[in-house]
């Protein structure tokens, strides 16, 4: 096994599991993140706001490297209730083409501050939201896309709005009793073999109209 890059985490339901990542894993994860960034329509000179927690560095640091390589500009805020004011501050101060990683904690924090979601997010054309936040943004009249944590990886919805792509070079999707199972295709520091992700949905393997052939998760409420 190659040298470790770090020990992050991922969630399955309410459980947070440790997630060791090797330097090789991390480099390949940057490749997956580049695909995700591109699926959100981010290009050179785009500006993105990234909402994450440090415990999620294994998922989100590759995204930041992906943004750097793309030459997109980005800002960072914690995806927490306490830090929701920072999300509101950035979105007030500047235009962001994409906000990604929106979760229910940030929305709860915006509720605390008395902000409406359309006021805060309305000017950003692409809102990539996690489970729970996706539904709340939609119910508030916004048009989010899926930014779906599936075990240790993130599935991202392209502009076809027909399910969220995972990187098929890295991950294999299966479904059992309506629950998505995740398997790593390549050796990793962490064993991920038919991991029950707690995500309910269907798998679509046809090539997408966006051009990506990566499989998609279509979540079910």
């Amino acid at each position: 096994m190659t040298e470790l890059w770090g020990v992050g985490s991922f969630a399955v339901g309410d459980r947070i599991l440790p997630y060791p990542v090797s330097k090789d894993d991390h480099n390949r994860d940057i490749g997956s993140a580049m695909k995700a960034v591109s699926s959100l329509g981010i290009h050179e000179q785009s500006r993105a706001l990234v909402l994450s927690m440090l415990s999620e560095a294994a998922q989100y640091w590759p995204v930041q490297i992906g943004l750097l390589i793309t030459k997109a500009q980005f800002s960072l805020a914690d995806a927490s209730r306490f830090d929701a004011f920072r999300t509101a501050m950035f979105l007030k101060a500047m235009h962001y083409d994409v906000v990604l990683g929106i979760n229910t904690d940030v929305l709860d924090g915006l509720d605390d501050l008395g902000h409406s979601y359309p006021d805060v997010f309305g000017k950003s054309p692409v809102l990539a939201a996690r489970a729970g936040a996706y539904e709340r943004l939609r119910d508030a009249g916004l048009s989010p896309r899926w930014w779906l944590h599936v075990g240790p990886t993130v599935a991202v919805e392209c502009d076809q709005l027909a399910g969220a792509h995972v990187d098929g070079n890295e991950w294999q999707l299966d479904v059992a009793d309506g629950e998505i199972l995740l398997t790593a295709r390549n050796p990793r520091a962490a064993v991920v073999d038919r991991l029950a992700t707690g995500v309910r949905g269907e798998i679509v393997t046809d090539a997408c109209a966006c051009g990506r052939e990566d499989p998609r998760v279509v979540p079910r409420d």
């Binding site: 000179q45 930041q64 750097l68 030459k71 500009q73 980005f74 800002s75 960072l76 805020a77 004011f85 920072r86 501050m89 950035f90 500047m94």
Partner: peptide, 17 residues
């Protein structure tokens, strides 16, 4: 500003970040 790669912020506990 367009030459920046990232725009981050100070913690902001003692006022606006």
């Amino acid at each position: 500003e367009s030459e920046l790669t990232a725009i981050t912020s100070t913690s902001g506990t003692t006022g606006d970040p």
